[in-house]
Design a protein around this nucleic acid. Structure first.
Lengths: 190, 190
DNA sequence: GGCCTAACTTGTCAGCGTCAAGATTGTCCC
DNA sequence: GGGACAATCTTGACGCTGACAAGTTAGGCC
């Protein structure tokens, strides 16, 4: 099927296949519960095949992170120039792509100097900065941006790890995006 | 010398020794760069000795997380009832004990039903809730608490991973606690 | 048709977590 | 003081993993 273009020696789409599976596995079992050999097995190739595309384990996570920043850039771009909309979009991205999100900020798992990673991250940052610029008159835009980034990043992380559920701060099965907007609304931007 | 009470068969303080080293290693090299066997070697015991105290790898991280929640509870308690002070204390804890912090919210690394963990976490949560109660008249205290938790957690995580340094949001070598307070001050609590 | 390169395989290695079984030591009770 | 007992640590083994090296196959390009 779609996973193989040729069913012989060459897989045909191994890089994308492994990357997709890796995102799923990281999302469901965490970063530690992942193995290049298992990913290779799932893709129907030999244990060393993924190494050709990613180098090593770190390379796989780096590629995953780069893809994540690309997706985040897209999401932020689609949200438009309003910073509050962008904030909610950040949360939406994190919860829609947990496998990517779990890796993107882990400097111990990612090769910091990877060109693809840097490019994708730079783009996402530029999109966000544009949103802050659109705010108009702000006394201390850098602090505002730090605060906004912190609050959405923290919210997404804590939600993802189930920290909120364990506390009694959630009223029933609240929608994370609704809640995220409510939380972001406690920020003053002026 | 203080690490061994007897230099014979029994180490005497293995559990605490391993835990301390583990915190250091996690802080410096990340969770993945840690190995029970290396920790055992560093403590001068056989490779299977730590298992007696922690069961398995997951047990080690669980113990580390529990210790982290205890430390966090102490820090929050020392900060007093003011929620802004507590928020800064949260950041201070995270940056002072990065090895613990890195593990505390990783549900994939921690045994969720561990009694020690639950007790320590419960205590830290109670201390924090007390601080929110001391705020007085608040329209929606749950949302306020979510927002405060999110912003400090996100700030600490992003700072820790070096995300802020990579952006151009920091003016020079800013003190994280000062910056944290400035960021928290963008929150409206009423 | 022949070459070149990318993609993948096979084989191997040391290190890891985990388990089982045995050795050593401190403690407590008589 | 001595013996049972539990806690602590060792030794040895197993399968799995990431990484590396060397060989094999296929596709593209002149």
């Amino acid at each position: 099927m779609a996973t193989r273009e040729t069913d012989g020696y060459h897989h045909g789409d191994l890089r994308a296949t492994v990357l997709r599976r890796a995102a799923e596995q990281v999302a469901s079992e965490g970063v530690d519960g992942i193995s290049l050999r298992v990913l290779a097995r799932l893709a129907g190739v030999s244990h060393a095949a993924p190494a050709h595309h990613f180098g090593d384990r770190r390379g796989l996570f780096t590629a995953l992170a780069a893809e994540g920043y690309t997706l985040l850039g897209d999401e932020l771009g689609a949200a438009g120039p309003d910073l509050r909309d962008a904030a909610v979009a950040y949360v939406r991205f994190a919860l829609a792509h947990p496998g990517h999100f779990a890796v993107m900020f882990r400097s111990d798992l990612v090769r910091a100097d990877d060109p693809d990673l840097l490019a994708a991250r730079g783009r996402a940052g530029a999109v966000l900065s544009g949103g802050v610029g659109a705010l108009g008159d702000v006394e201390d835009p850098a602090t505002v941006q730090l605060a906004a980034w912190s609050i959405v990043h923290g919210f997404a992380s804590l939600w993802r790890e189930g920290a909120f559920e364990r506390s009694d701060l959630l009223d029933g099965a609240a929608d994370p995006e609704v809640l995220a907007r409510r939380v972001v609304d406690r920020l003053t931007f002026t």
